[in-house]
Computed example of a mutant assay.
Amino acid sequence: MKTWRRLAIPYLIWGSFMLLLPMLLIVFYSVIQPGNDVATFRFSLSSYVRFFTDRDFLLILWRSLKIAIETTVLCLLIGYPVAYWISRCSQKTQNLMVLIITLPMWINMLVRTYAWIGILSEGGPLSIVLGWFGFHNVDLLYTEAAVLIGMVYNFLPYMILQIHSSLTKMDPSLIEAASDLGASPFQTFWRVVFPLSIPGVISGITLVFLPAISAFFIPKLLGGGGWFLIGNVIENQFITVGEWNFGSAISVIMAMVMMLLMTLVRKADRKASKEEKA
């Protein structure tokens, strides 16, 4: 046991310097303000007060939550049927479909998002297809729809894979028993399949919502600066404006929001697991 603990020491050191120390620095910067002298500083919560008293920043936070919720709902509505269909296929077909879904993830997310600029731009493939159906001169790029398309495209595989993993672990005899007892296909799905897949659904929601609420380059590229989300505000404060204190305060606020959401999701996951065992 002591040997295994010693093997964990390098990871603890790495985690302390690469994970814990940056977080502590962000918290430190968020509660200080520069003093009269360059080398001095003073404790202050003015950055937090500024965020919660400025209507524009609260509006951006609400917009970020709205976009993240819409992305998560769309991923769930699209991902669950796809994951369910894949789980009903043969093992060979499942492996092929999972490979097809994960294949785009081998390419950098930034490159994939850049590709959507060409697809959604005027005269692009999607514009041409819409023209066949009579929809001419439709502005797709630099709109909320473009941001949602980019978000769903990038985060949908996480939802599908989590739900598929949960569905494949399900005991097929439970479905057969429900059918033998006279349950219709819809009743079998709603009372047997869906409740047992809730842990996968919750995991998928977590993996989609958390990165969606803090995304910054997807709205920046596909929104054209017109859809300024909370991730863009943090980037702007650190890189453009140079107000590290205020940027750190926003980062801490978002970290607290994410921790709260993760706690709620974990409680829901535990509740679903207890109901599944019962």
Rank of each mutant, 00 (worst) to 15 (best):
S47W: 14
S47P: 14
S47K: 15
Y48Q: 13
V49N: 05
R50V: 10
F51G: 14
F52K: 04
T53R: 06
T53P: 03
D54K: 10
R55I: 15
R55S: 15
D56I: 12
F57E: 14
L59W: 12
I60T: 05
I60K: 00
W62Y: 10
W62T: 14
R63H: 04
R63P: 00
L65Y: 05
L65E: 00
L65M: 07
L65R: 11
L65H: 09
K66N: 14
K66V: 12
A68W: 01
I69P: 06
E70V: 15
T71Y: 10
T71I: 12
T71K: 02
T72A: 07
T72Q: 09
V73L: 10
L74H: 07
L74R: 08
L77C: 13
I78E: 08
I78K: 01
I78S: 05
I78C: 03
I78M: 04
V82K: 06
V82Y: 07
A83P: 08
A83K: 01
Y84V: 12
W85L: 07
I86A: 07
I86M: 08
I86R: 11
S87M: 02
S87W: 07
S87L: 00
R88F: 05
C89T: 10
S90N: 15
Q91W: 00
K92C: 05
K92W: 11
L96T: 01
V98F: 10
L99F: 12
L99K: 10
I100K: 00
I100D: 00
M109A: 15
M109I: 14
R112T: 03
R112I: 07
Y114W: 12
W116A: 10
W116V: 08
W116D: 00
G118D: 09
I119S: 06
I119R: 01
S121M: 09
S121D: 15
E122Q: 12
G124D: 07
P125A: 06
P125H: 09
P125D: 07
P125G: 09
L126E: 08
G134H: 08
G134Q: 01
F135L: 14
F135V: 13
F135P: 06
F135N: 03
H136M: 14
H136T: 04
H136V: 11
N137P: 06
V138G: 10
V138T: 03
L140T: 01
Y142Q: 06
Y142D: 05
T143Q: 13
T143D: 12
E144H: 09
E144P: 10
A145L: 12
A146M: 02
V147G: 04
V147N: 08
L148Y: 05
L148R: 03
L148G: 07
L148I: 09
I149S: 06
G150L: 05
G150D: 11
G150P: 11
M151C: 06
V152A: 00
V152Q: 00
Y153H: 03
F155A: 00
L156A: 01
P157T: 05
M159A: 03
M159Q: 02
I160C: 03
I160G: 00
L161R: 04
